[in-house]
Design a protein around this nucleic acid. Structure first.
Lengths: 306, 306
DNA sequence: TCCAATGGTTGCTTTTGTCAACTATATGAT
DNA sequence: ATCATATAGTTGACAAAAGCAACCATTGGA
C-alpha cells in the first residue's frame, strides 16, 4: 500500500509539471482551463449547466458566467426546456468552430508531447494510459453503454472478478471457477437462449452479466458484477433488466441465480428486480465456509404485472 | 500515433478530475497548489528562489510573494549568500512542521484514492504509474520485466489471446479452450511443478507463458504469446528460457508443446530455444482444418551442453 | 570601467474562483 | 389545494491567484 501511495504521489508531481496544469491560459488559447473544459462538455453533448457543473465540479455561479461568456462570443444560444427552470445550451456553428480550433491545438500539443517516443514506447504508453484510466475510473458525461459480448470479453470478466473478489479471500478456487464458467459459456453458447452483456463507460468495462439456459425452462443468471468506480450509476440494475427482458422474450419460465450473502450490493440489486431468496446453504468451494444463496424470479409474475 | 494521442487526451481529462487539480486550495489546506509545490521544493532542499522558479515555472514576482508569505508565517528565514543578490531560504522548525502536516494530508488523500482498489489492481497501478512517469518524462524505461502470475492474470491471458487469434478465424472454440486451459491451470496449480510467467512493459501485460506437469517427467509449455506492440524485444525467448530453467530445476526430463504452423514467430522462438518438431497433424478443433505441431526439448541435452 | 545579465522585489492590473443571497420553477407530502 | 423543500440558474460582492512591467542591487565579462 505505501508503495502504491508513494508511486501515486511521485506521478502526481511529475504529471503536474508535464501537463502544465498550472498555466492559467489553456494551451495558447484565450480560454482558461475551466472554460476549455466547459466548452468540451458542451461540444460533447452536455446541454444543461447543471450537468456540466456536476461533471466538472465547478461553482454554479462561476459556470453561469463562463456560459454567458460563450453566449456573448456567439458560440452558443440558450433555449427553454420542458422544465422552465432549465436554459438548455445549443452550440452555434461559430461555437463549433471555436471548439474545433481548441480541439486541434490540444491535439497538436499532445502529439508534440508524444513525438519523442519510440513506436513501441508509444504503444506501451497507450496501453498503460488506458489501463490506468480504467483503474482510476472512466469519467465523462455519458453514463454508460450496454452491449453484448465479443472476443476477449470472457477473459476480461474472469480477470476483473478474480481481482475484485480477492479481498474476500476466495483465492484460486474462485479464479478457476470464473475461468470454467466463462469458458463453458462460449463453449456452449446458443444464440437466442444464452447471452452476455457488458456495460462500458468511456470504452472501459464497467460491469457485466450473463444468462444461460439451465434446462426445464429455467434461465440462470451468472457473474453479475459492477466495477467499484462505476457503482451508484444503476449499471447493476440495468444489466439485470436486460437479462429479465431477454429471458421473457426467449420464453423462459423463471430465472435463478446463485450468489453469496457477503455480496450485499448484489443482493440489493436482485431484490429490487423482483427476485426472492429461495435457499441458503454453506459451502466450502472457496477454501473456507461461505454462505451461498439461491434467488429466483418467476417470469409469469412479471408478465402478469405488465 | 493518433491512437496514442487520443489515449493521452482521454487520460488527461480523466486525471484532471481524479486529481482535483482545478481546486484552488490544495487538499483541505490553507495553501494554494503553487504554495504547496513551493513548500515541497524548499523542504526538499531548494535554497534559491530562482531554483524553485525554474523547476516550477512560476512567475518570479509571484514566487517572491509566496516566499514572503512563508516568511511572515515563520516557516522560513532568509539569509545572505556568497552572491549578495541571493537571499537563501532556510526552513525553520515551524516550517518543517507545516510541511510535514501538508505531507501527511497529501499522503492520506492519495491513500484514500487507492483504498478502493484490490491488491492486484494496486500492484498493476503502481507499475503503470512509475513507467508512465518515466515515459512521459522522456526518461527510458526498462524494456520489460518478468514476474510470476497473480490474481486476474489467467483471465487477462485468455482475453488477450482470444483477441489476437481472432484474425485467424479460430473464433469461439479457441476462446473456450483458452478459458479451459487457464482455469485448469489455477485449479490444479502445484507449486514447484507448474508455473506461469507474465512479461510486463509499462505495467501492462506484454506477454506470458505457462508450464504444467503433463506426467511421465514431461512438462508441457502452453499459451506462449507476446503482444504485437512488444515484439522484437526478446520477450518470447526470455519467457521460454524461464520455462526451461524452471523445468530443469524441477527435474523434468523434457518439455513438450503444441502449436500451429501458421504461428511463424512462435515457431522461430521454439527453434531458437532448442526445441525440435516431432509431429504434425491436421485437426478441426477450431471450426476449420488447421495444422497443429508438437515440439519437444530434451532437457538432458541442455544439461549436457551446460 | 561600463554594460548586459542575474536574483530578487514591488506596484499595478486582470483573471479566476468563492460565497451568499436571490428568482423562478418544480416536486412531494399532507 | 397548499406549503415546505429542492432544483436550475443568476447576480453582486469579494478574495485570492496570476501576470506584467518596472525596478534595485549585484555580478561577471568584454
Amino acid at each position: 500500500m505505501e508503495n502504491a501511495v508513494a508511486a501515486l504521489r511521485r506521478f502526481n508531481r511529475a504529471y503536474t509539471s508535464f501537463a502544465g496544469l498550472l498555466d492559467a491560459r489553456y494551451n495558447g488559447s484565450d480560454m482558461s482551463l475551466a472554460e476549455a473544459r466547459a466548452l468540451y462538455e458542451i461540444a460533447h453533448g452536455a446541454r444543461l449547466a447543471s450537468d456540466i457543473q456536476a461533471v466538472l465540479r465547478l461553482d454554479p455561479g462561476y459556470l453561469s458566467r463562463i456560459v454567458r461568456g460563450f453566449q456573448t462570443r456567439g458560440w452558443i444560444t440558450r433555449g427553454r426546456g420542458a422544465d422552465a427552470r432549465q436554459r438548455p445550451i445549443e452550440l452555434t456553428p461559430a461555437g463549433r468552430d471555436a471548439f474545433s480550433a481548441l480541439d486541434r491545438t490540444t491535439h497538436d500539443r499532445a502529439a508534440g508531447q508524444l513525438a519523442g517516443l519510440a513506436d513501441a514506447d508509444r504503444q506501451a504508453l497507450t496501453a498503460a494510459l488506458d489501463s490506468m484510466r480504467a483503474l482510476l475510473g472512466g469519467g465523462g458525461v455519458a453514463p454508460y453503454e450496454i452491449r453484448t459480448f465479443r472476443a476477449g470479453d470472457m477473459g476480461m470478466i474472469a480477470a476483473r472478478q478474480a481481482i475484485l473478489y480477492e479481498p474476500y479471500g476466495w483465492g484460486r478456487p474462485m479464479e478457476a471457477l470464473l475461468g470454467e464458467v466463462t469458458a463453458a459459456f462460449v463453449r456452449h453458447f446458443k444464440p437466442g437462449r444464452d447471452q452476455c452483456w457488458i456495460a462500458e463507460r468511456a470504452g472501459v468495462m464497467a460491469g457485466s452479466v450473463m444468462l444461460v439456459d439451465a434446462g426445464d425452462g429455467v434461465a440462470k443468471l451468472r457473474l453479475l458484477y459492477v466495477e467499484p468506480w462505476a457503482r451508484g450509476l444503476g449499471i447493476g440494475g440495468a444489466l439485470v433488466d436486460r437479462c429479465v427482458a431477454f429471458a421473457r422474450d426467449a420464453g423462459y419460465a423463471r430465472i435463478a441465480l446463485w450468489t453469496h450473502t457477503v455480496l450485499a450490493s448484489a443482493r440489493r440489486i436482485y431484490a429490487a428486480a423482483g427476485f426472492h431468496l429461495t435457499e441458503t446453504a454453506i459451502h466450502h468451494d472457496f477454501g473456507r465456509p461461505e454462505q451461498g444463496e439461491t434467488w429466483e424470479l418467476d417470469l409469469a409474475d412479471i408478465a402478469r404485472e405488465a
